[in-house]
């Protein structure tokens, strides 16, 4: 209270009252998280109404990337594992929905659970043998696995993935007999799953499993000494993350009605990794910020699209120097990184 008053006095009467009212809003926000959540949800519900179809699609795409970012955040943010092949699971989810729809005539929304299950199972199979790898080694192997998945899709695996052209002509999802065709319908469908995902992530963060992830990330041996099975909880992080990416893949297939091996390309995984790391590792709002920076901005400045990769590189370099913990980091990661910096700066001995 006292400090806020001082600030106010320093900036004059008008500035002072503005700072005070901003501080008051923040205080209310902190005391009433439900109010903030309701306001954000209302904003998200109203957002597409004044927009054109093009911008509604941009909003949908951003939402899909937030979903993907949140799924990768389980692996990278909570459990601290480098996963640079995450797009592979996105592709597996999309292909699962597409194949079930085209071959077996399963309606798209009914195929979503299968997308989740297949992507989760693939996550289990792929990561089980490499769990003991640490840090950069794990990153290298995940890159390789991502490429293997992409190449398998290109090579028309089992003759059902359609080769380099992918699969097209997927049915649009329909709800209560109404086909979802307009971008706004897809936006609301995405928003529903996004809301469910955020609630789920929020719960995971504050659970026994979430704490075990944090412990393993901080010190694997100490975690083992506390009776935490590091291998098991890491595997759970991978499976949950992969399964959730599969969900985003299924939603993607329903909107575009086309899937192609490019979904699993390495650059896609890099963008997802950047969303998590630049936004703020381990932080749900951070993923939103990251997705806006990595997906929405390049989309809004379409003429500069060719510069997207340069933009990615430049932001990465600038961020790593200026703010390694990300734009909106979780409290813990911020302390971790700031603490390490200070330790490094302190004179030896």
């Amino acid at each position: 209270m006292g400090r806020e008053r001082d600030n106010g006095a320093g900036t004059g009467r008008w500035g002072g009252s503005m700072i005070e009212s901003a501080a008051a809003i923040l205080r209310i926000a902190r005391r009433r998280p439900l109010l903030v959540q309701a306001a954000l949800l209302l904003l998200a519900l109203l957002l597409p109404l004044p927009l054109s179809d093009y911008y509604r699609t941009v909003a949908w795409r951003t939402g899909i990337y937030v979903l993907l970012g949140l799924s990768l955040n389980v692996v990278v943010g909570y459990a601290g594992l480098f996963q640079l092949g995450h797009a592979a699971f996105y592709a597996i989810g999309a292909y699962t929905a597409a194949i079930l729809n085209l071959r077996c005539g399963v309606p798209l929304l009914a195929a979503l659970p299968a997308s989740v299950a297949v992507a989760g199972a693939a996550g289990y199979l792929i990561t089980r043998p490499i769990l003991h790898l640490r840090g950069d080694y794990l990153a290298i192997v995940t890159i390789a696995f991502g490429e293997v998945v992409r190449l398998a899709l290109v090579n028309n695996l089992f003759g059902i993935t359609g080769g380099a052209n992918g699969l097209s002509g997927i049915d649009r999802p329909s709800l209560f007999g109404v086909e979802l065709r307009a971008p706004i319908a897809h936006y609301y469908l995405m928003l529903f799953f996004l809301a469910v995902t955020i609630a789920a992530m929020h719960r995971l963060e504050r659970s026994r499993l979430g704490r075990a992830w944090l412990c393993v990330r901080e010190d694997e041996e100490a975690a083992a000494a506390m009776g935490i099975d590091a291998t098991r909880v890491k595997l759970q992080a991978f499976v949950i993350g992969s399964a959730w990416a599969g969900l985003a893949g299924g939603l993607f297939a329903g909107k575009l009605t086309v899937v192609a091996p490019d979904l699993a390309k390495f650059m896609e995984s890099v963008v997802l990794f950047c969303i998590v790391v630049l936004g703020g590792t381990g932080s749900i709002p951070g993923v939103f910020v990251g997705a806006c920076g990595m997906v929405t901005l390049p989309e809004l400045f379409r003429p500069l699209r060719d510069w997207r990769d340069a933009w990615l590189g430049i932001t990465m370099v600038v961020m790593m120097i200026a703010r390694p913990e990300g734009i909106w980091p979780s409290r813990r990661v911020q302390m971790e990184i700031r603490g390490e910096k200070e330790e490094a700066r302190a004179p030896a001995g």
Partner: peptide, 13 residues
Amino acid sequence: LHPRTRAGIWGAL
């Protein structure tokens, strides 16, 4: 208290 408790993914979700 991790080894003495059992809630998993489903319990948390």
